[in-house]
């Protein structure tokens, strides 16, 4: 057997150990990027081989928490891809406006920047008081940060630029207070969003959503897991509901390709047929 095949066994055993000890299943993550992240953790933990992680993770929950952070922390920012948000305002908001009350699920929200970005735009469209926004992630630490709504002010100029590019009507600074080098979103926005734990890998249907946003999460899943989660999204969406993926993610190579119409190929915006 080649060394590379043995290394695959090591990773399989490591993932199995994590699944049984902590109930997190990474076996259907996109393997090549998963391996890079495991290697990243090995360097940080000053280890050479994946098998050396197994006893550490089994007996030391802190090491597992670091593993989880290594795997789940995604770089997110306010109004990443402003053209996606402007597309959202133009083509989805008018439909949401026809409902007396509607629900949005932001799946894989990480530390919450995009959920707040969305809430601000809903507020400006006069839709926020009719919206129920659920933002979920499988990393509790990220959810804590999202719940607080406090972010570094370091990138605020860029955020403001992207906010305007996305179709923001006022000044972004209207929606937060600044203290030293941090910003805190207003209570109205924070109260509009329910941040909650939900693991797409194992948790179930999440109510009747009018809009599901899940951007740059599928890139880390393999095809099988992506299809399972898409099935979950399909079941969680109302008839004619919307689904938004990351700009380089697509339904084209998935089981849902015939169940949704494409509203925007460039921004990966889809609408359920019936």
């Amino acid at each position: 057997m080649e060394l590379s095949e043995i290394a695959e066994i090591e990773i399989d055993v490591l993932l199995e150990a994590i699944r049984r000890r902590y109930d997190y299943d990474f076996s259907h993550y996109a393997r090549s990027s998963l391996k890079r992240r495991i290697n990243g953790l090995l360097v940080k933990e000053k280890l050479d081989m994946p098998y050396q992680l197994i006893p550490r993770i089994l007996y030391d929950e802190e090491v597992f928490n670091r593993f989880l952070s290594e795997l789940s922390v995604t770089v997110t920012e306010m109004y990443r891809d402003p053209e996606f948000f402007s597309n959202l305002i133009e083509s989805i908001f008018p439909v949401l406006d026809t409902y007396p009350y509607f629900k949005i699920w932001h799946a894989g929200c990480a530390t919450g920047e995009e959920a707040y970005s969305l809430a601000v735009l809903l507020k400006e469209a006069g839709l926020l008081n009719r919206a129920k926004i659920y933002a979920t992630d499988y990393n509790n630490k990220s959810i804590d940060i999202a719940n607080q709504g406090i972010y570094s002010a370091e990138n605020i100029e860029l955020s403001n630029k992207c906010y305007l590019k996305a179709g923001g009507k006022h000044s972004f600074s209207k929606y937060y207070t600044e203290h030293y080098d941090a910003i805190k979103f207003n209570d109205e926005l924070r109260n509009a969003i329910t941040f909650a734990y939900h693991n797409l890998v194992k948790d179930g249907v999440f109510g009747e959503m009018n809009l599901i946003i899940c951007r740059n999460v599928f890139i880390y899943f393999d095809k099988e897991l992506q299809n399972n989660v898409l099935r979950l999204f399909n079941e969680s969406t109302v008839s004619k509901g919307f689904l938004c993926l990351g700009s380089k993610e697509s339904l084209r190579f998935s089981i849902l390709k015939d169940k949704f119409n494409t509203l925007s190929e460039a921004n990966s915006i889809y609408r359920k047929k019936d």
Binding site: S32, S33, V75, N216, I219, Y220
Partner: peptide, 18 residues
């Protein structure tokens, strides 16, 4: 702005990693 990787099933995956 995405890393490009090849997966075992002979398809591509992208990543936003550092």
């Amino acid at each position: 702005d995405y890393h490009l990787l090849i997966e075992r099933g002979l398809y591509f995956s992208l990543s936003k990693d550092d």
